[in-house]
Every structure is written in structure tokens, then in C-alpha cells.
Design a protein around this nucleic acid. Structure first.
Lengths: 139, 139
DNA sequence: GTAACTGCAAAATATTTGCATCCTT
DNA sequence: AAGGATGCAAATATTTTGCAGTTAC
């Protein structure tokens, strides 16, 4: 099982209180988190700037990945599979529930490849599906 | 061919100078535009607030659609096909060139459907592919 | 001890809201 | 004339930067 300490060490990052707690939030959360979520969940124990910098560092190291949104925010989620610096493997579909608002990584659903028009050279593809999650559907 | 006046009329919007010019930008542009692009291209002829409100109105009416990004911005592009209020048909793949930065609607490439885990009910899917566009590839 | 990390202050940017005025119909 | 749209001012929110002090190794 993933361990805060080892994840940080493996990425040659100093093990600090802030990084441990923020990483923990991701490990515990089933869904993706936005910058604002992290501030709330840590009860503003850390400076807003520290949160920005921590998220940026985690993305650069490939510990978390960004999920595109349509509302001027970015969602972040753990990279479950092997991610290295500069080489993310967040090649899975993301789901946003329009009822509860949760953003979930569907790790087992791979982004299908598409045939692009002549000349285009694809490097990365992201897919976000919105709708009702299993829980909200039954309410 | 699409006509500014008719597009606005059809959506029961008053035909004003700002709306005509902003709509024109979209009609002329081959790619998607961000709020900032519009300010630049109109040479700040309109108040920043007017641009916000115009974009919001256009999205609500289904004249343009939003393209999700991973950088705290939203790109907007014309809905080429039939879009009605609340019912967008922007069911095509978007391409972002990592070299020139352009965001392009690949109207002819449909977002493939994926098999979601049990219980999830999909309503809408967005797909953004990044890589090199046809032009940048040859440079 | 040194390099890396954090917090604070402040600047720069971006977005929203209210209201008076102007324009479209 | 009436309702809708715009511009301006101002409040709010978000993100970035520099630097000094603190912490991890």
C-alpha cells in the first residue's frame, strides 16, 4: 500500500508536515480535489501559497495529475499507476457527477484512441464524462 | 452561411455592437478563443465585464460551447451544429497544439463512447487531444 | 551547516456585483 | 416607452513573486 513517506522520498522531496497532510488527503479521498478543497480540508493550517506550491510540485513529480474542467478550476487526483517526472500515465477516463459534484478517476476505463484528420500528431488525450454516479443515480 | 444578425435574432438577443463583433471573432477564427483573446482582438473596445457577460449569454443560448482546459482558463468555440438552449451538441473532439497553442474543434471527429463501471449514467462526454497540429508538424 | 521549504506581505490578475445610463425593439 | 445591454466603480477572489525565517537532512 502506498505510504506518504515513501512516495515523497522516492521523488526526492523533503518530508514536511504540509506535504504529508496534503498527500494524505489524496490517499484518503476517493475523488479528485481542487485547491479550495484542500484549504478547507486542512482547515487552513497551511498558507494558501504553500498549497499552490505543493500541488505544483506534486504535478511536476508525477504524484498527482490534473483533470481539465470547464469552470476555471483545476481538479487534482493521485496518479495510481507508474508516473515519472514528465511522463504521466493518467490515461484513464474521469467522471464528474452532476448531482453530487464529485470528480472520480475511473482507473480501469482507458481513454479510447481516435482517428485524427490527416497531419495531426496526437501525444496525449483526456476524457471527462459527466452524468450521474452510482450513488446519486439511486436517490 | 451563418450570419451574425440571424444568429442573434434566432436566439432572441438584441443585436448590439458588442455581440456582433464578438460573434464575428468566433465566425472568423479557426480555433477556440479565451476571454483574454477576445479582449485583445477587440482592442479593448468593450468593457471587460461586457465580454464576460456576452460569453456567458452565448454559452447559455448554445451559440458557443466551452472547452475544458487544465490551466485555469476556459476556451470557447462556436457550436457548428444544431445547438439549443441547454442542449449542446458539441460532441466532437478538441485538439490543442502543444507548439502553437491553438485549440481546434475537430467537428468531424466524434467523441467515442466508453463503457462505464456498473451504475454510472453518462450524460455528456468531452475529449481533448493534445499534440502537434498539421502545420506545426512540418516545422 | 546547507539546501530546501514555508509563511508573510504585497503585487498582479481575474471575476462578480450593483447601479446609473444608453440602446434596441 | 420599456426592457434589455453596457460601462463604470468597487468589492471579491485567485494566483504569483520576493524575501526572510525555519526545517529537513
Amino acid at each position: 500500500m502506498p505510504d506518504k513517506y515513501n512516495i515523497l522520498k522516492k521523488n526526492s522531496l523533503s518530508v514536511t508536515e504540509g506535504r504529508k497532510q496534503i498527500l494524505n488527503l489524496f490517499l484518503e479521498s476517493e475523488g479528485a480535489l481542487a485547491h479550495a478543497d484542500i484549504e478547507k480540508k486542512t482547515d487552513a493550517a497551511f498558507d494558501r501559497v504553500t498549497v499552490y506550491r505543493t500541488l505544483q510540485t506534486f504535478v511536476e513529480k508525477g504524484i498527482i495529475h490534473q483533470i481539465p474542467t470547464t469552470d476555471n478550476s483545476i481538479m487534482y487526483a493521485l496518479c495510481r499507476h507508474e508516473c515519472e517526472e514528465g511522463h504521466h500515465h493518467d490515461n484513464h477516463v474521469h467522471f464528474v457527477c452532476s448531482s453530487c459534484g464529485k470528480t472520480i478517476c475511473l482507473d480501469e476505463v482507458t481513454v479510447p484512441s481516435v482517428q485524427l484528420p490527416k497531419g495531426f500528431k496526437p501525444q496525449h488525450a483526456a476524457m471527462v464524462v459527466s452524468g450521474l454516479c452510482a450513488e446519486c443515480r439511486n436517490n
